[in-house]
Write a protein that binds this DNA or RNA. Structure first.
Lengths: 178, 178
DNA sequence: ATTACTATACCAGCTGGACGGTCTCCTATC
DNA sequence: GATAGGAGACCGTCCAGCTGGTATAGTAAT
């Protein structure tokens, strides 16, 4: 198996462990088993636990950034295109987001500095959203609402019913179209 | 020292460790030292690590619920009073929120079931907000935006400047007043 | 006598990481 | 075209160190 695809397999294994069994069960042995390789093999690809978590964060930040940039670029309407991209990618790619969440929790637990790739991405999105042709405060509230959706899902604190979620999505879309 | 105040001291000690040193450094010994008691003394009050984290979550859920209920009750205007209470308490009690965040992270790491007190509180707030006299979808978006603020602070992903934060707060207040 | 601790010692269990092998491929030389 | 060599991708074992929790003996105040 190629180096890069095996590395991504490992990241998925790590994410699923965090999601299903929690951070304290994110051990190198458990990740290796989940990925179907030995502990030594895992350490060949990621020489430490911190390197593994760093890989998780970088992978998801790149993935997410790329999708948003693509969406914004493909949008025929200039005004509000970044806000719409942020909205659409977050609402539609729910599976990817769950991976993202796992990376966030892992990085926060292991070493907060590992969140830097996410911080950089966020800073960029916020800048784009504020210079998107919409009212900056309203656009920021929109972004915060989208993040709030994540928080609910990340902590399973409050699951919004699918119907209400769609209504919220529709209303936010209307705002992003002015 | 009285039983209850010593127990709260311990919870604060545990919270500060999670905030400052991360979940993996939340050891019984570290909490005891931070609280200025022996490990045996800590285990006298909280017989296990799980009990300690449970105490953190329950404390913050009660604290937060109480404040929101008081605010809503004291509001002279009926329409939107729960939404305003949720908004004001979250924006103003920033120090308490940081304790809250630590409890969330700890519970998520140790055992997701420990988040139940928060889930119950959230379910109640959502119900009140939706029956507050405001448009339910808009009120829900408002709640999500407030939660999004937490997420930023919890993960230090993106710190909104104080000025923008106040503008957001002002706009959300306007919405909650219709 | 009970409550609320302190201080110290102890232990079984798990974990990260080190380390030394192994098994393909691919390439270069003879 | 055969053989050797080396790199890349992995395996499996070992171990020092830390952790949660238990246990015990004592103290000081109520």
């Amino acid at each position: 198996m190629s180096r890069s695809s095996r590395k991504i397999d490992i990241l998925h294994a790590a994410s699923s462990i965090v999601r299903e069994r929690g951070i304290f069960n994110l051990t190198l042995e458990a990740v290796a088993e989940q990925a179907g390789i030995s502990k030594g093999g895992l350490l060949y690809h990621y020489p430490s636990k911190e390197a593994l978590v760093q890989g998780m964060v970088e992978h998801l930040a790149n993935n997410y950034s790329e999708k948003i940039a693509n969406n914004a670029e493909a949008d025929p309407k200039e005004k509000g295109k970044w806000t719409r991209a942020f909205l659409d990618v977050t609402f539609k790619q729910s599976y990817q987001n769950k991976d993202m969440n796992a990376g966030l929790l892992a990085a926060k637990a292991v070493n907060s500095d590992l969140l830097d790739p996410i911080r950089d991405a966020y800073a960029e999105w916020q800048h784009e959203i504020e210079h998107d042709g919409l009212d900056p405060v309203k656009a920021t509230i929109l972004r915060l609402a989208i993040d709030g959706m994540w928080l609910s899902e990340l902590f399973d604190i409050y699951q919004i019913e699918e119907e209400k979620k769609q209504e919220v999505y529709q209303t936010l879309q209307d705002w992003a179209n002015e």
